[in-house]
Design a protein around this nucleic acid. Sequence first.
DNA 1: CTGTTAGCGCCTTCAA
DNA 2: TTGAAGGCGCTAACAG
Lengths: 345, 345
Amino acid sequence: MGDVARLAHVGTMTVSRVLNGTARVSAETAQRVQTAIDQLRYRPNELARAFRGQRSRTIGLIIPYLYDPFFANCAHAVTTVARERGYSVIITASDEDADTEYIEAERMLQRHVDGIAVIPARSRHSRLTKALFGKTPVVAFDRPVSDPAIDVVLVQNTAGSYSIVEHLIEHGHRRIAFMGLSRRLFTINARFIGYRNALQKAGLQESSFFGCDSQQDTLRAIQEKLSESSPPTAFVTSNTLATLHVFSSLLGLGIKIPSEIAFVGFDDFELAALTAPPLTVIRQPAQEMGRTAASLLFERIERGELPKTGNRIVLSVEMVLRRSCGCKHRTDVVIPLSKGSAAVA
Amino acid sequence: MGDVARLAHVGTMTVSRVLNGTARVSAETAQRVQTAIDQLRYRPNELARAFRGQRSRTIGLIIPYLYDPFFANCAHAVTTVARERGYSVIITASDEDADTEYIEAERMLQRHVDGIAVIPARSRHSRLTKALFGKTPVVAFDRPVSDPAIDVVLVQNTAGSYSIVEHLIEHGHRRIAFMGLSRRLFTINARFIGYRNALQKAGLQESSFFGCDSQQDTLRAIQEKLSESSPPTAFVTSNTLATLHVFSSLLGLGIKIPSEIAFVGFDDFELAALTAPPLTVIRQPAQEMGRTAASLLFERIERGELPKTGNRIVLSVEMVLRRSCGCKHRTDVVIPLSKGSAAVA
DNA sequence: CTGTTAGCGCCTTCAA
DNA sequence: TTGAAGGCGCTAACAG
């Protein structure tokens, strides 16, 4: 910067002012400085700026896994919003581990990020608290954190699940099983609650299995359920992984869907329309959630601490009717679930 | 830091030394400093460290899209390696746009990242050059950059494509069509070359279509090809997106796979084993590529500029035989393609 | 083994 | 409208 100043015959302050537009500089001087900048190909050292000023123009993003398509979509939206605002994003995967998450959050704080967006690791264990972050804004999304003072953006997990189970009931199913990962995951549990509510309202008995993490366990659980005296006639799954495992188990057992067993899942994915049969699912607005979380974070960062703390934004989901539920549509039928739906998220 | 020094009755340098283990400090003093650090919950300002020192302990990662599962897997591997080494990762999506990519690379440079890993945007346009980066190490992966001085990690695109087409030929197919996105994409073009080589070796005529970006265009192209006087009996696709579009077109036309038309694709994906029929594909080692690229980058960063510049590492791919090619296996059969395979990547 | 001095590149403050 | 001084938090280089 000194070089630029010298070349333009001005003080470093003038260069700084031209760079930031902080104060009025005469057009002529500004021009001279600009020429010097171009000539020297001078680029300000962002590190020094961040160090000196209060803003690093960087936000942190912590998600469980980068390779999970749902999380990746969220992350993409966050990075896009950040770029539009001229911010950089420091990203890290927590591997769904609360300790890793905590350590990485601290590391980001040490790097003086201006804010952090996080999809918390398994909620029961997450050690993220408002206290840890101090003045640094934080917003959690997809799952809440235990500290209610932290903003959170969620989707209608319970209401979505409720609706899709209700749909199965409308198809005449009386014995519907819920297949999930672990109830310790907020979203899975919320979806299970929706399932349970729908069954209770219809006066039906619940039947669930948690542990669809592996293909083997899922297959075994399904075989067990199907060999009961009155086996389920329909399955709902908690998320894409469970959907994959249950679906392939069903196919592997040579079961015809939906004629013998109906099948629906929570969370849409690229290929859900191309399986045989195409899958009826609840679709979550992944990118919208990322955008919303990022926007909320920037509100906090740029407008300062808002008066109201502990915001909770709930985004609507959609039901995508295809064939696995028993419907006979030719193409996808998308049914938006408004916030005022049967159950609250 | 001054506070810590005062509390421990030492100079700031001693605190610094305890923090970094730079020089030997008496156990007793170190203990006192440590206590003060804990008591004050002192955390070093990484920004100041980076600013002062030569290292920011941050690397940049630029990929076309975060939501593409293949890229996301690569990114996950890169962030994992970085975390193991104590580095942070600044990530950004170029949206496959060379200008965005260039701007973001510059921004990272301004932030003084210690190195950059990049999956370049459409190679013909990428403006990434060794000159832009100066002393900052860069490694490209998945696709090369035009500047041959930059290290690059690739997979056996041509050899993989060659092998899978050869497999189709062994199944007796004589008219095989290649369906791809754009030849302007390095990987797509390399795979097309492999296809072409395999056909030439067998004395067969090529038939290709580029533009499978949308479902409609793909369907139209397929209908056109199938209405030729001697239509193809097998299709190969260039990547997952093309696979999805071709596959659903074929299904939509009521064509039986593989009895009427055989079908194979480049690039495996989570659901390829669950479609009807399961898809035979070439599988790329996404995570391994990310790990390799990151490791190479850290070599450069930590060991300094290596003598040999312009490294080119080519990773092996595998052929995953399922049913869509005409094979009758019960489960996946994975055939690794060694580097010494028929065609060179 | 430990402390002092100095300066990284920038911007806030104050004076001209 | 412009410039000079000073310091952000840290550490290299030197002195003790």
